[in-house]
Design a protein around this nucleic acid. Sequence first.
DNA 1: CAGCGCCTCTTTGTATGCAATCCAGGCAAT
DNA 2: ATTGCCTGGATTGCATACAAAGAGGCGCTG
Lengths: 233, 233
Amino acid sequence: MATRGLSVTNKLREAVLGGDYAGGTRLNEVDLADALAVSRTPIRAALSTLAAEGLLEYRPNSGYAVKTFAAKDIEGIYVVRANLEGLCARLVGQQGLSDVHRGLLHKVLAESEELQNVESWTDEVSDLWRDLNDRFHNTLIEASGNAHLAMMLRKSRAIPLLNQLKFRWFDLETLARAHDDHSQIFAAITGGQVVRAESIAEEHVYRSGQRIIEHWRKMDSRKPAAGTKARAA
Amino acid sequence: MATRGLSVTNKLREAVLGGDYAGGTRLNEVDLADALAVSRTPIRAALSTLAAEGLLEYRPNSGYAVKTFAAKDIEGIYVVRANLEGLCARLVGQQGLSDVHRGLLHKVLAESEELQNVESWTDEVSDLWRDLNDRFHNTLIEASGNAHLAMMLRKSRAIPLLNQLKFRWFDLETLARAHDDHSQIFAAITGGQVVRAESIAEEHVYRSGQRIIEHWRKMDSRKPAAGTKARAA
DNA sequence: CAGCGCCTCTTTGTATGCAATCCAGGCAAT
DNA sequence: ATTGCCTGGATTGCATACAAAGAGGCGCTG
């Protein structure tokens, strides 16, 4: 990592995305500086960056706070994301897969297939599947060759806590269904069924969103939301 | 404007979007500080923000440079934007228009209708139409009630020079067509024809993108791209 | 006792000095 | 002539001191 500013940015981003700070938590510059053993300058740079990324909220003369995502926000984000992933599949279908990307996807699907043999949904399985799922979607995005789309999708996937929780809420049946969706998307793309690829991809993400929103809603109702002060990373 | 940092950010953003700096121009902190009569601190904050917004590129220890948009980039952005505007129309169609939004759109359409009577495509007409066009799209976005979508679309529309040039390349025929598209989108939405609203909106943006890319390509081939040093705002 | 305003303390905003890095140009050796 | 190295100038990165804005408590007044 070249500069302290960047290093701090990454650490903080990870902390926020990992859910280390409850939504609404105010991030005190001095505390963070102490905790990370740098001055306020790189801290401020990092905070400003993360705010622009949409992870923090900024109020002049009042500082930065971790953005809270209500179920309704997640819903809105997922509608967009589903649409974009659909577009992504369509683009890839239109322009075809390079040998490299086809190989990568094939490998992911093979490993996913193997994962179907597990007997129960443990945290370990959850982590394995998260990795496979990420690889599948990231490869597709890369294959689309559209940098702007990639950026949008990255933003649509960067939600605190979500990647930690998402797959804990899975079960074997859902896994099977998700894997099947992936296979079908791949088949549609290689088979030149562009519209079908788009539909399945969109529906795939949308469905996954529905499940998440449901769980998120339960969490929401349990949390009175925040206002607490930050503790260090 | 509360803080100097924010004020500088806005000024700089406007300058970059307005095309005051050629693509690739390096932005020197001291020069900017002098020009805007503040210290380097708020300048750095602004640069960092704009980089996160995607208008500038950052290289550690080397500073910020205005991002260059090649025709291919514009193409990628417009594919995404078309899709998102389509989604936007669909959402509005699904959940219906509030009286306020319906009124706003109606007003825009009425004024646009009136603009059809001009005899030639002057810069003045161009500015009027840009305003009407912005109002139409912004109202639709607002009516969708999806903050994330709004953010994505804002990002997809923030391209240096584009808003300056876009409508200079128009002509009366294109204006008529664009206005007609708007009318049809409005009609489809109020008529509950959700799918149709989406299709027209997507196609409307896509077409407009095609025109722009064509012109952009011509510009691209004339420019040897940059490396120049910045002059102040 | 309630409401208002002041005052202080906390926290953020800005300026500036110094350190670290990078880049260009020149010089020398191959 | 080309390549590699070195050095000086320019520019960014960081820390810190000081200024200013906000939030909350306290006392004063009605």
